[in-house]
């Protein structure tokens, strides 16, 4: 089982790694880089807790082998706050009580961020579609939608 050499840019930082063929992106982030903000809830791509942004798109990091994404750019929840300033989405999640236990929150933020990168003024329906792969058992989603809408409405 040969290791594979991979270059990645994670939250703006370039790194080079040698990974195993079975190493998933979530394993690289959590176990190797200790970027534990990305959560593992189901390991089958059904809960969204492990969502990160890969080359501009929301992906479940449990459904990607790191060996597949040489040269890619990855944004995780740790990369949202820049220079001590929260991303507007993070601030909105705080202001609108969109957080309860907080386990789904990083994935929710990354799905919302991916949406806004592409579409800064989505409709409520588009917000729901962007977040349909992120399960939350605490909030009933209502305040999460309110939070995102507060950022997207002028």
């Amino acid at each position: 089982m040969k290791k594979i050499k991979i270059n990645l840019t994670i939250n703006g930082k370039k790194i080079t790694l040698k990974v195993n063929p079975q190493e998933r992106l979530i394993d690289t982030l959590r176990d190797r880089l200790k970027l534990t903000g990305t959560k593992e809830g189901c390991s089958i791509g059904e809960c969204g807790a492990c969502t990160v942004i890969l080359n501009g798109k929301a992906v479940a990091s449990c459904l990607v082998f790191t060996a597949q994404i040489d040269g890619s750019k990855i944004l995780t929840v740790e990369g949202l706050e820049v220079g001590g300033k929260l991303d507007p989405l993070q601030q909105a999640f705080l202001d609108h009580h969109a957080v309860q236990c907080g386990f789904c929150t990083p994935g929710m933020l990354m799905s919302a961020k991916a949406l806004l990168l592409k579409n800064p003024h989505p409709t409520r329906e588009e917000i729901k579609t962007a977040l349909e792969g992120n399960l939350c058992r605490c909030t009933g989603y209502e305040q999460i939608i309110e939070a995102i809408e507060s950022v997207t409405k002028d």
Binding site: G37, F93, L94, H97, V99
Partner: peptide, 21 residues
């Protein structure tokens, strides 16, 4: 009053340590 959660900052930044972390 609808005061903001006092444990919110850690949770929106990924800094909050859950047991698996």
């Amino acid at each position: 009053k609808p005061i903001r959660r006092i444990d919110g900052y850690e949770k929106v930044t990924g800094k909050a340590k859950f047991a698996a972390d």
